[in-house]
């Protein structure tokens, strides 16, 4: 009983700190993320430079802190796209049923048949690279997951006795949908939202790493790791530490998703 709660606490703390990085980076680091001090280049982590410095003497921790805003806002946009489009599609399919359901779900099958990254790359060919485009691209990839979950939840709840009993109590269709079906369907969707938030951060950093996201001086997390690749043999911190931050954030989002999923089950 005690241990899982500690996990949840740590996860919330990680997300809170990263959110603060994004909102007020100045509180956490005094170093400039863009301008380097060439004399201090490629220094290993120390008390002065927590994460060390890169090839042009920029403080890596400052770059990670300042970069969080790109990852987080991108993930927000991506999740918003997936959540809104996907959940709407799913609710529509689940509550309308019949041919509408069939049509929506076949469309979702199609989305599902193309791997997320390829779908994102396709959207990038269409819209061109850039932070917002990457976020939209990643969001498109999660539409299918949201739609399927939302639909299956609506269908499950609609089959329950209490929904029938609500009709039996004289409820009209929209009232029953609003009062019973929606509140009871959304729990798992919210859990998926938290999970997808982490997945979006992963996907955005992947696209950033491949060079389709922010332009080079920007301290986007994926880009940081890509830049650090050239110094693999000598400066392990340039790739290892930003990546560890990504892992921590994604793990935290997953942990929170699980606890939401459990409390709404």
């Amino acid at each position: 009983m005690n241990r899982p709660k500690t996990g949840l606490l740590v996860a919330s703390l990680v997300l809170a700190v990263v959110a603060l990085w994004a909102l007020a980076p100045g509180l956490f680091t005094a170093h400039d993320p863009i301008a380097g001090v060439p004399a201090e280049k490629l220094q290993a982590p120390s008390a002065r430079h927590l994460f060390g410095t890169d090839a042009v003497g920029r403080d890596l921790f400052a770059r990670v802190v300042h970069g969080s805003v790109h990852s987080l806002s991108g993930a927000f946009v991506a999740v918003a796209v997936g959540l809104l489009l996907g959940t709407l599609l799913g609710l529509l399919a689940g509550s309308a049923g019949g041919p509408v359901d069939d049509a929506v779900m076949r469309f979702v099958d199609v989305l599902l048949s193309v791997p997320g990254l390829l779908l994102a790359l396709t959207v990038i060919i269409l819209l061109g690279p850039g932070t917002v485009n990457v976020a939209i691209a990643v969001g498109t990839g999660s539409v299918a997951a949201f739609a399927r979950l939302a639909r299956s939840e609506v269908v499950r709840v609609r089959r329950t006795d209490y929904v029938e009993a609500a009709f039996g109590s004289g409820g009209r269709y929209p009232v029953v949908l609003w009062r019973h079906v929606l509140p009871n369907s959304l729990g798992p969707v919210i859990a998926l939202t938290a999970l997808q938030f982490g997945m979006a951060i992963l996907a955005i950093s992947t696209l950033g790493f491949l060079g389709y996201g922010a332009e080079p001086p920007t301290p986007e997390w994926g880009l940081l790791i890509a830049e650090g690749r050239n110094y693999l043999a000598t400066s392990w911190w340039l790739t290892t530490l930003p990546g560890a931050v990504v892992v921590a954030v994604v793990l935290a989002a997953g942990r929170i998703s699980r606890s939401i999923g459990r409390s709404t089950a």
Partner: peptide
């Protein structure tokens, strides 16, 4: 859970 949270490129 750890495995899914790791960026593949990293």
């Amino acid at each position: 859970s750890l495995f899914v949270s790791v960026p593949v490129f990293w």
